[in-house]
Amino acid sequence: MMGRKESLRLTPSQTVGPYLSLGLLREDWSKLVPPGHPQAIRIEGTLYDGAGEPVTDGLVEIWQAAPSGRYDHPADGREELPLEEGFHGFGRSGTEEEGRFSFVTLKPGPVPGPGGTTQAPHVMVAVFARGLLKHLITRIYFEDEEEANGQDPVLRSIGDERVRSTLIARKEAGSLYRFDIRLQGEGQTAFFKLSA
């Protein structure tokens, strides 16, 4: 092999703008499993801006592992862990109804973390909106996974309990979790920068 080829520079990000639903919400991709699925959970939340007003022109996308902890992706080679028939782990919800988004999905399993650690069950989240020149990244953890959350390398890296708690979905009813996203201000959600 010759020396490393000079890498291409990335195409810059731009906002989705106020009309994203035209291109990105043509179909309902918010139900990752049918609502009648025996293991289905529902995650609901509202997207708020820095004035505490609901953001009605946003988009929330999720990406997650199957209940076994395996991702439906070729980079996850752990074939001994089962995938779920018809479940791929990607979802998308608009926030046009008073800032509310929701997903019907399965609870993900634990996933390997850095240095032999185990990450607690979590959902990767990307937030898009007018006024966001690039999307924001956060994570949904689950309140009823207290022990796994206590061992999670990402949650443990956050010293401030108030910040950490913004990443935990609250269990409301049997299979319903609430996860609000605050872009700015009091109680702002913790957002991440992916390390290179």
């Binding site: 801006d49 820095g50 004035a51 007003e53 953001v55 990406w63 592992a65 991702y71 439906d72 992706h73 070729p74 980079a75 996850d76 791929h88 782990g89 990607f90 996933v111 390997p112 973390g113 850095p114 990450q119 979590h122 990767m124 909106a129 007018r130 006024g131 966001l132 924001l136 990244i137 390398p153 990402v154 890296s157 956050i158 910040v163 872009l183 700015q184 201000g185 702002q188 959600t189 913790a190 957002f191 991440f192 920068k193 992916l194 390390s195 290179a196």
Partner: peptide, 24 residues
Amino acid sequence: LRAPKEPLIILPKTLSDITGPVYG
């Protein structure tokens, strides 16, 4: 009113972000 003001938290590279929706 939409830009976060708190510092971003560095997320270590894991399976959770080197995978993504390629199927479905």
